[in-house]
Design a protein around this nucleic acid. Structure first.
Lengths: 151, 151
DNA sequence: GTATTAATCTACTAAATCTATAGGATAACT
DNA sequence: AGTTATCCTATAGATTTAGTAGATTAATAC
């Protein structure tokens, strides 16, 4: 299960993606709009800023906005910044490989074989799907559920 | 990343899978053989026992063995017992659905749409792969790496 | 250049979870 | 009855999570 921090960050980023090109948004406004704890969100957005996902502007008229087009930011990027590697075990991570401490023989590890497949499966979803695509998909489901309701 | 508890449990279960039909194994032997902390392993195996993965026998000649054939135990089962639901967010879990606390409107959630796909991708790997299959796959890789080495 | 605005930084804390270990109870076998 | 091995409950230290407080820095407006 992903942490609240990651969920909050994703919520904020999706929010900014929907308002892309509408100018910077205040932390306070994002927090209020999405019902997120403001101070906590502050540290999350700061991290996303440092990792090149967001752009910030201080002072009046300032705030946060996406640094790149929502079409060019993959959901996996956000997850990696906030949650860490996608891989279920560090020994199959592509971006942050590390031998498992307790592992005696990596080659002879059945867990590793399975988890490699899991990592790839997760990556195939998260690294191929942009923020924009996710929103389109969400809107499609939302749309069809409204139609079902009104008929 | 999965916890050490889950890794230890998987190691033990794979070990028992390889020794299926060779009679019960002692916790102490499993722990020594796989270099796992014995007392911790004890609580892990107990949990797997209660959830119907393992069979135990007390007294002399006793120990632990798989309750079912390694072909019939999916890796996903073990993960669910030790780590919890496969889903990255509880609102897309098939086995343990629960509305996310911080969520305002599930239908309008872009995170949910993406994470549903992730859950399915993970499940497609873990719920279709038995302990026996994973071991066969591991042996195949091991085999071919030995061949590469000896040539 | 001063006031205002809004992000940045440091540091701290409460609560929960993880990683174990201790020690006695229970059951099975000899 | 004695031995063996799992079962059960409790506990404790370390780490992570979730969040807050308060001062600092930078940009803008006047």
């Amino acid at each position: 299960m992903i942490s609240k921090k990651t969920k909050y960050g994703l919520q904020a980023v999706f929010y900014l993606a929907e308002l892309y090109n509408k100018g910077p948004m205040l932390i306070a406004d994002i927090a209020q709009n999405r019902s997120l704890p403001k101070k906590f969100l502050e540290t999350i957005l700061l991290e996303l800023n440092k990792k090149g996902i967001l752009h910030s502007q201080k002072g009046k008229g300032g705030g946060y906005s996406l640094k790149r087009n929502p079409n060019e930011i993959m959901v996996g990027e956000i997850i990696r910044v906030l949650e860490g590697p996608l891989a279920p075990v560090s020994c199959v991570s592509q971006t942050a490989y590390k031998k498992c401490e307790e592992c005696m023989d990596e080659k002879a590890c059945a867990i590793r074989v399975v988890m490699k497949e899991v990592r790839d499966a997760i990556s195939n979803v998260l690294d191929r799907q942009s923020l924009a695509q996710a929103i389109v998909k969400r809107n499609y489901f939302l749309e069809s559920s409204i139609i079902n309701f009104t008929i």
